[in-house]
Amino acid sequence: MGGTAGCGVQAAMAIDIREDRVKMGIVSREGNVLFSRRYPWETSSVAGFLDALVLDIADFQRQAEGRWEYDRVGVSMGGWIDREAGMWLYTAKVHGFADPVPLRYLIERATGHPTFIDNDIHVSTLAENRFGIGQIYPNFTYYHIGRGIAVGVVSEGNLIRGAANYAGEYGGYLYDLGGQDGVCRLEEFASGRGMVRWARSLFEQYPHSVLRQADRVGALSPTKIFECAAENDSLATYIVHHVQRGIGLSVVNLLSFTNSEAIAFGGELAGLHGLLPVLTDFIEEHCAAPTRRSLNYIGSGRLDVHEEGMIGAAWLTWEGGGVPPCPGRTL
């Protein structure tokens, strides 16, 4: 989306780093993405990531210069974040990550603007809370299905963060696949990466599966797995059955704990063929009566999955993520 911010329009630069990409945008205080660009996420090393990020920021600012005005930066970052200190504490996605990274300081130096940073799923949940499902239901659960699996829980309008700002890392939910696979983490077979890895590990048991041919030409993906399941491919059907059941059980257990009024599914894989209708039926069948009667909405989040991270990151700069600016930093 292009154009020029008018006089008095408040906007922020947003940086959303998740999945396999970095998205940067200019977002208005009303939650509209005015301009955006996408860059690859360099994961070969921490130094390589930081060098690439600085170059990407410079490129983005050159393109936005003279077109959009902003005076703050919000960052949505995958991994464990100390939002008060602005530190990136851990991620498994960048090779060789060992020591905390002062990400807020580095981005402030690169952009020249005060910066706020938080975990990516927390940021998406905050976006839904401010501009999406939270405007209707003050008690809701955001369930993200992408390359990983995570959740955000909002109670009476407030995001539950946990003691170390690490609440919601739900990919560790345990599920019994049976047989040789046994008990494993939900993310290992039901996330985007997990589905593809699991399919490859089963090729010898399903030598005639269409998925095997798809992998040979670089076309194996979660979308392909669900499409082939709809066409009764035996391996794809087996995988999709466990994905649906594993996510379904995790949702039912989660809702039994949160007693949410709504559950909103987000992430780039939440719209996989037939997934939401199956999950809806599973929830309605297996939730206890009080939990089910409290639940008024089961469905997709209200925001564009490709923009929610940028929208939430921008909103951090006005809400501050609950963290006051450091001394000497003004907004």
Rank of each mutant, 00 (worst) to 15 (best):
Q61H: 09
Q205D: 15
D215N: 14
S260Y: 09
G194T: 03
A11D: 08
Q135W: 02
W198L: 14
I283T: 13
N296Y: 13
P40K: 06
A163R: 13
L177G: 11
E204H: 13
G266F: 05
M310Q: 06
Y142D: 00
L103I: 00
V153P: 00
G48T: 14
A230R: 12
T258F: 05
G132C: 14
G182T: 04
T111V: 13
P277E: 02
A110F: 09
S234G: 02
G25H: 04
A14E: 00
C228M: 09
L106F: 01
R329A: 05
G218H: 15
G320R: 13
T330E: 11
Y170S: 04
V196C: 01
T125R: 00
F49Q: 09
L295E: 14
V196R: 05
G48R: 06
H286C: 01
V154W: 00
L254N: 07
H306T: 13
F35W: 10
A110H: 13
G78L: 04
E128W: 05
R329M: 08
Q63P: 02
G162Y: 06
H286P: 06
V243P: 00
G194S: 04
A219R: 15
L254T: 11
G172N: 11
R72D: 03
G322Q: 14
S201K: 15
A164D: 15
